[in-house]
Structures are given as C-alpha cells and as structure tokens.
Amino acid sequence: MKALFWFSSKLALHMRYIVVVTGLANPSPIIQTFYMEESLVDHVKLDGVVTLVDAKHASQHLNEVKPDGVVNEAIEQIAYADRILLNKIDLVGEPELDALSYRLKRINEMARIKRTKFGVVDMEFVLGVGGFDVERVVSDITQLAAAESSAKEHSHDHDEHSHEDDHHHEHDHEHSHDKGETGHDHKHDHVHDPCVSSLSIECDGNLDLEKVDDWLGNLVEENADDLYRMKGVLSIEGVETQFIFQGVHALFDGMNGRPWRKDEKRINKIVFIGKDLDKEAIKKRFFECLVPAKQTVPTARG
C-alpha cells in the first residue's frame, strides 16, 4: 500500500504537479506540513491524497495487529485518501473485491474508488482532485450523497428480487456487514480494526450560529488527534448563504458559499472520518444546535 501526494504549483503559467510517494506510513505529517509551512504555502498547494491498494494483499495489511493506541498505517492511508486505486484486481475474485471495497468505504466513505490493473488509470481521476479546497466541498458531498442513494436503490432492487422469506432476509442483511473477504464472520477482524470509520450526518433545518460554532470548536479541540478528515455544508439561521468547511485534525478552513435558492430545501450535510469517535454523542450534540421549527399559532375566532 502506498500514498501519493499531488501538489500543484501556484506560480507556473501552466499547471504543474509534484508527486510525493510514500511507503506504508502515516500521511498526516506530510499533509500538515503543506498546510503550516509558510515557505511552501506561498508556492504550492496540496491537491489531494491518492492511496494505492494492493487488492491481493490489502486484507493482510488491514488486519495487522498493532500495540494498544497505535493505529494501523494501512488504515490511516485509507482514512486520509481523496482517491483510492484498488489495483491488481485481476488477481482476486469479484466477491473478494466487493467485500474489500465495502471495507474501504466503511473506513472512508468520502474517497472515490477506482479498480485498476497494472496501475493504469485516467489522469483526470488523480489530477485536479481539489481534496483540500473548501470550494470543492459542496460537489464532493453531493457526489457522496448521489453514490449513497444509488447504493440504497441497488440494495432495494436486490431485496425485491430475493426469493427468501422476509424474516430470513432481514437477518442476513443485519449481519452482512460483518462478513470478511471470504464470507466468514468478520467479528474477528474487528479486533484488528482500531475503530477508524466514517460518520455522516444529514438533516434539514437551520442551525444556531453560536451553538454550532461552539460544537465544532469543542469537537475539533477534544478530538484533534483522532479526527482525520471532515467536510460539511451547513444552513445557518438568518444567513442566506451556505457555510462550507473542511479540516484535517485541528486544521480547519471555512467560508460562505453560494446563496440558498428560494425553492431549495436547506439541508445540512457533514462527513467525519476518525478513530474511536463517539458517534452517538456527536450526532446528539449536532442536533442540539438546530433551531426549533416555528410553530404556527392559530388565530382565535368569535
């Protein structure tokens, strides 16, 4: 497994890219260097992180047991990725590829995955990624929502064509996500997985600016080491533009986006990728930031 960092030059008349290739290592220090090192920030910008996954041996790396408190580097490379190249697909079967793809998505649902042989890929997939551009957050989350919707439709179609009785199908569906690449119970593999996963929150309504600002600030401060990536589009009460943000650990960047259209439903969408995140607590505190819907008071008559 390898991580490739793509950087584009800000000064060149024609766009130029610098590719930094690592082995099996934590990508975070490189990412943060290009955020914080002033001598670099003025000349280049981080375009994206591309992780190359060996489909034949990926499970071996992902299942590697680490000491308590140490995150598996292979899992970290998946968590930080903007693009994932699932390579050597000719060496494994379709069921194994599907199971591995699901596992990668469970870690990082924001990353786009492309299956390849011999590392052959269209350059458009790995160049101009804009993985760290706050302006690209809306399109990234929109694509993610579309992919999730498509997956749900596919799952629904599969349900409709099942010849099993309803009770049996529901039982299988509840446990299908716990099966590994060979179809066996995946609980053993969870022992190896240091709980790095994605959390998505989507709901309509407006947010109280002061509450959501405190919530995000506290969340980043309390979970800086364990919060790998985050992106979001928020609807703030009394503000007619979208608020969009993205971040890596404690590095946070936000800005006002385009105006909400009059006929548009104002929907909040957030994605977090992190380790040992208290998902229920995060969701609970987020929903506490919502402004209660205004109730219509009936007019007294007579």
Rank of each mutant, 00 (worst) to 15 (best):
R115D: 00
A147N: 04
A147P: 00
T116Y: 01
E160N: 07
K152Y: 10
H158M: 10
E94G: 05
E148P: 00
L97T: 02
K105S: 12
S162Q: 09
V138F: 13
D122I: 07
S149Y: 03
E164L: 15
A99V: 09
F125A: 10
H158W: 01
V129N: 04
R106H: 07
H158E: 05
L97V: 09
F125N: 05
E160R: 12
V126F: 07
I141F: 12
L100I: 07
D122K: 15
I141V: 13
F118K: 07
G130R: 06
A147M: 09
G131V: 04
D159C: 04
S150W: 03
N108V: 00
S149A: 15
L104E: 04
Q143P: 01
I141D: 01
T116D: 04
K105W: 01
T142M: 09
V120A: 12
Y102V: 00
A146F: 09
Y102E: 05
S101K: 13
V134Q: 03
T142L: 12
L144C: 06
V126P: 00
A147G: 03
L104H: 08
S150K: 11
G130C: 07
S150A: 13
S155F: 04
S101T: 15
L100K: 03
H154E: 06
N108A: 02
T116F: 05
K152I: 15
H161A: 10
L127H: 12
K117E: 13
H163G: 08
R112S: 15
V138P: 00
D98M: 14
G93M: 10
S139Y: 06
F118G: 03
D140I: 06
D157S: 11
Y102S: 11
S149C: 03
K117W: 04
E94M: 10
G119K: 05
A111P: 01
A145P: 00
K114Y: 06
S139D: 10
E124R: 12
L100W: 06
T142A: 12
E164I: 14
L97E: 01
G128T: 09
Y102D: 04
L100S: 05
V138S: 10
V120N: 13
A146H: 09
R112Y: 06
G130N: 12
